[in-house]
Design a protein around this nucleic acid. Structure first.
Lengths: 210, 210, 210, 210
DNA sequence: CATGAATGAGAATTCATTCAT
DNA sequence: TATGAATGAATTCTCATTCAT
């Protein structure tokens, strides 16, 4: 480190601020470069030493979890807001779009985004998701043979579209979602394939394959 | 390795045979363990030394490309067969399902499967894909506001579903595809979002982001 | 830490008290976990910040020395008490046993216990040790071809026994010492090997190889 | 690495030779600098890259074990040779001295030398050790109230003497051993302290405290 | 004067690629 | 030509020490 850099970098910044800086740097790094980014890169971006990160997060895995949890928290917010909307249909639709946008905003994190270790969080997401879906179904906007797992799978499916197109066609996922939404309207009942079981969905979300 | 084994193994194995063995081992390894599998693992599975792999493929990247090209070749086969089917609708549907199954069979490769560097191959896939789509549209099975890029995006979207569910719910992608197919039937025209442009699609397929 | 706790804790704790707390915590930590224990662990145990330790002890090494000196002080006490005993034989024996017990009580410190940097301290230990030995020899309890260095080496030898057995057989060293004591009684004169020279002993105690 | 060094270092030396070089370098490094020596140091001493070491030994621990096993193998040799000596007394004595010398030769390894994970090896050492002791007892050279655990403890006790004196008084342990031998001769029966139990001894040797 | 957050060199380990045999 | 041993840069994590607050 040159003397200049040394001067630029203020030693002993406020601790709370540093935690924020680390999480921000981590989130940005993960978003942009993926979860494989080196701890030194994150530290440099946060303007701290690697040791500082390890003081707050015992391992890289913990840092990743913290970032993912922050993101998942915004998912819950999105659900809550959607549930408060007067129109159930609009609430459901808004939620789907926000989930697309959120995945777009965190492309680098998608490989782990939907792996939610915390039982309680996972359960709340599920309960609120079911509520959103049922409200929309009761309003007649969504066919009755769909279960929340279908929504989950839809959200998962956006990942690979977004990962591929984020850089060159940031809106590509919107059209796919629009098509999916059309398949959600009542009228096409009688699906030959059974939905993903809740148990399987749970296993997937817990275990984090890939 | 004893001298005897050395003799048994090496003695004038045909070069062509070696190439096959390497590609088979690589494909199997990639399918099962992902592209991150070590070169030594592949070599062991092929029953050759790593050096032999590097003789045929200057880098791991080249080996990956070769495997992906083989898989992509089966995609072209699938298209050709679909085009030969009497019913355009059935041909189109069959192609989609075969693409789902193919991705399932090569889970470990999905992160790179649709990155096709070869211009000619990419073009043929595109032309044949368009033909499949148009035939189905002409038969009235698919709405006219769809372009082949929509199909491409649909295929991409299966990746993340398959990656997550392959181990616990191998059929999960089928239901998602079934829903997508319903959104493909005429009647829902007037999409607000424009399709992925052909140029963007090309860039994505060439560059291989992730 | 809340502001309140901050106030409760810090408010004018006496400097001397702090020093005691640090030394106590360090001794306990070293005894139980070995000299490799982290400075933060010691600080936490003492209820102070690491910085406070570094204010009193410029380096971890200095803290270790301070703790060792305290322990060595108890060695001197033991010698003094032994010298005051009526029976020279009993004094000598008691000293040996107390040294075994002391090493047992400070297992974690043994790798450095007998490294005594302070010339004066080392000299006093030597003088008093010689006195103890000679008194016992004059009383006929110890053979005359032994020098104090033999006793020193005996004490050193207990270290590795204690380190190995402390957890599973806390009395193992006693039997070894008992055997050594038997070899100390007159009758076995005519040792082929010369004793450790005083100079060598001094070097060892000063330099602290391991 | 300068060009010169590059030239000096012959790439691709014979594999078997390299294994020897690595073990030799490791043994020498451990002996001289202790088990904490860095893998890079060992690699440099062996004239190979670190990766080469890791090819043979999956972890540093494995390398350490390999070195220790080699040393322990010489212990077994020493026992076997001692058992073949005509005079049981001389055999026993020779063994003790060779053990002292061996520990002296491997000072840096002493912290782990007597931790023997392999049940079979540990058992053979014990059986042969017992045989050596009993033969000497039958010949009247060693008192009958001693068990092999006493010998084990004696060998352990040499460690700390040797660690401290190796550099300045390489023969210091010999005098201690000579004294111990005198305490071994018949005549001093009636020890107040029980010997280390075989079970405790086993636990110590397996678990490796310190 | 006390605090404890921040530092960063150092240690073990991995793996694509090279090249002597 | 085939082999697989050797390479070493890169990565994660630790801990004695410093210094802003």
């Amino acid at each position: 480190m040159t003397e200049q850099e040394q001067v630029q970098r203020t030693l002993r910044r406020d601790a709370a601020e540093n935690l924020t800086r680390i999480l921000d740097a981590a989130r940005a790094s993960f978003d942009e470069e993926g979860l494989d980014v080196g701890m030194d890169v994150i530290a440099a971006r946060a303007g701290v030493g690697v040791g500082t990160i390890y003081r707050r997060f015992p391992s890289k895995e913990d840092l990743i979890q913290a970032v993912l949890e922050e993101i998942i928290e915004t998912v819950r917010d999105s659900q809550r807001r959607a549930l408060l909307m007067e129109s159930a249909t609009e609430g459901f639709t808004t939620f789907l779009h926000e989930m697309g946008q959120l995945q777009f905003d965190h492309v680098g994190c998608l490989s782990r985004l939907w792996n939610i270790a915390d039982d309680q969080v996972r359960d709340e997401l599920y309960q609120q998701g079911c509520a959103l879906l049922e409200r929309a179904q009761r309003e007649g906007a969504v066919r009755r043979d769909l279960v929340y797992e279908d929504v989950t799978v839809l959200l998962w499916s956006l990942r690979s579209i977004i990962e591929r197109t984020a850089l060159v066609a940031p809106d590509a996922w919107r059209r796919h979602l629009e098509l999916m939404e059309q398949s959600f309207v009542p009228g096409g009942e009688m699906l030959r394939n059974a939905p993903l079981s809740h148990e399987a969905s749970e296993m997937v979300s817990k275990n984090a394959p890939i």
